[in-house]
Amino acid sequence: MSASPPKIALSGVKKRFGRKVVLDGIDLEVAPRESVVIIGGSGTGKSVTLKCVLGLLKPDAGSIKVDGEEVVGLGDRARERINTKFGMLFQSAALFDSLTVWENVAFGLIQGHKMARRKAREKAIEKLAQVGLGADVADLSPSELSGGMQKRVGLARAIADDPEIIFFDEPTTGLDPIMADVINDLIVKCVKEVGATALSITHDIASARKIGDRIAMLYHGKLIWVGPAATVLDSGNPYVDQFVHGRADGPIQMELRG
C-alpha cells in the first residue's frame, strides 16, 4: 500500500475453539483512512477476526498491531486505552436497553471521556442528526425504535467520540434492501466525515462493494483473496466468484455440520 504505516496490521493470527480451527493464519493490513471489508460465509471466522482485534477474544498465535502497537495480551488498563480509538457497530446494534437513546450515544463520552452529562447530551443529539435522526428520539428507549433506527443509533454511538477506527459487524443484516442501502450510505458518509479507518465484516456483497475500498475473502480460516472492491465481481478466483454470485455449486461446499 502506501508509505505510511498501517493503522491495523494482523499477521499470522490463529484461533481455535477446542479442535475446530477457526482462524488459520490471517495476514491483513489496513492503511489509515482506508476501508477494508472482510467477506465470507457464515461460520468462516469473520466475527472471530473482529473480536480478536477488539480484544474480546485472545488469538492463540500471531500478532495484531494498532498504530504499530502490539495489542495481543494487553492488560485491562492498556486495553481500555486502545479501545478509546475504536468505535463499533454491532450486528444487533447492542444498544443498552436500560438507557435512553441519547445516553446510549453519549455512553463513551460520559464514561470514557468524563464529559458532563449536559454537554454529552448536546453532542449526542448532534451525532443523532448526523445519522438522520431528530432530537425527538433522544429520550426514547431503544426498544421503541425500529430495527433500522436502532442501527442508526448504533452508528451514532460508534462515531460519537470521533474514533480513529470503526468496526462494522454485518451492518446491513436484518434490514430491508432500501434501509440497507441507506445505512451503507450513512456508513460511507460518517467514515469520511470522521476521517476514520474502517474494518467491516459482512456477507452482503452489495454492501461490501459500497462501503469498502478493498475486499478480503475469508474461507476456511484463511484470507484467500484480497483486492480492490471494484474488481470483486470479476476476480478470477473461483471461490470468490461462487460467493459473490451466490451459487450453490462450486469449490465452496457448505459445511452443514461443523
Binding site: M88, S92, A94, F96
Partner: peptide, 24 residues
C-alpha cells in the same frame, strides 16, 4: 439482565466503549 446483555452483545459493546463490564 446480565445474561440478556451477554447474549445481545451489550457486554461486548461496553468493552468497546472502554468501560470494563466487571466494574460497570
Amino acid at each position: 439482565e446480565v445474561g440478556t446483555m451477554r447474549v445481545t452483545e451489550q457486554i461486548d459493546a461496553l468493552t468497546t466503549l472502554s468501560t470494563n463490564p466487571m466494574k460497570y
